[in-house]
Simulated assay, not measured.
Amino acid sequence: MKQGGTTPVPDTAPPGGPRHVAIIMDGNGRWAQARGRPRLFGHHAGARRVREVVEACPELGIKYLTIFAFSTENWKRTQVEVAGLMSLFRRYITREARALKERGVRVRFIGDRLRLDEKLVLLMDQLEEMTSNNDLVHLTIALNYGGRDEVARATKRLAQDVAGGRLSPDDVDEETLPRYLDTHVLPDPDLVIRTSGEARISNFLLWQSAYSEYEFIDTLWPDFSGEELRRLCTSYGTRDRRFGAVPA
């Protein structure tokens, strides 16, 4: 499968590669500014890159892909940039919906939808419904998402169930809270990638990534490719994941 003019990804999945990859897509603004263009130019380039990465997933054995599109902290950006991003999200959903459905991609959104405008939320709902029977790749888009916010919302719902007698306090353990998270239908990510040279997790999937492997790379998101994703998946396959245990 070709990816937008870049090197095709070989159709053999790396042995022992990750099943669930999560990506903090960073560097769009710097990519644009390095070219003398406004930050929104970089965001549009980054949105186009998502298609290539999604298309690469089946050949790499990636069943689940979760991408960080807009955080709860991103509202602090200029009104012009935020408005431009919201417009970009609406355009992305409208433009990509049919292709995602035809490629067998199931789309989900995680995050707090209350602050998003009604038109965008309607498009999100429609895309989720349109792709609900697909199973080739599960694409989860984190939109107005923050890990702490997610845990707080989940804890509130859990507390409501305890107060309402639907859940006993004695039954609450580390297996209980995940059932209240936005990602309750997804496996935890095996590999988390952050682009652009930053080495922090930025409030992304805090609970879910407790035992994820991390890759912090210098590539700015608009330059990220299916071939680089393959390289990272191959590297993941060489890691010894013990989950706190000692090898026999």
Rank of each mutant, 00 (worst) to 15 (best):
2 K>I: 13
3 Q>K: 00
16 G>W: 03
16 G>E: 11
23 I>Q: 00
23 I>K: 03
27 G>A: 10
37 R>N: 01
40 L>G: 01
42 G>F: 13
42 G>C: 13
46 G>T: 11
49 R>G: 15
51 R>M: 09
52 E>F: 03
54 V>K: 05
54 V>S: 03
57 C>H: 05
60 L>F: 01
64 Y>E: 01
65 L>C: 10
69 A>Y: 11
71 S>R: 08
79 Q>S: 13
80 V>P: 00
87 S>A: 14
89 F>E: 06
91 R>L: 09
99 A>V: 06
100 L>A: 08
100 L>I: 05
103 R>G: 02
105 V>T: 09
110 I>P: 10
114 L>N: 14
116 L>Q: 02
119 K>G: 14
128 E>F: 03
133 N>K: 15
133 N>D: 12
133 N>I: 03
133 N>H: 11
134 N>K: 06
135 D>W: 01
137 V>K: 02
138 H>W: 15
142 A>H: 12
153 R>M: 12
154 A>R: 07
159 A>M: 14
162 V>Q: 06
167 L>F: 04
168 S>G: 10
171 D>Q: 10
171 D>A: 15
174 E>V: 11
188 D>F: 06
190 D>H: 11
191 L>S: 11
197 G>L: 06
201 I>D: 07
204 F>P: 05
205 L>K: 09
207 W>F: 15
208 Q>I: 03
208 Q>L: 02
213 E>T: 14
214 Y>S: 04
215 E>G: 01
217 I>T: 07
219 T>N: 07
220 L>S: 06
222 P>I: 12
222 P>Q: 11
224 F>L: 09
224 F>T: 02
225 S>K: 04
226 G>S: 08
227 E>V: 02
231 R>P: 02
236 Y>D: 03
237 G>V: 05
238 T>Q: 14
245 A>F: 04
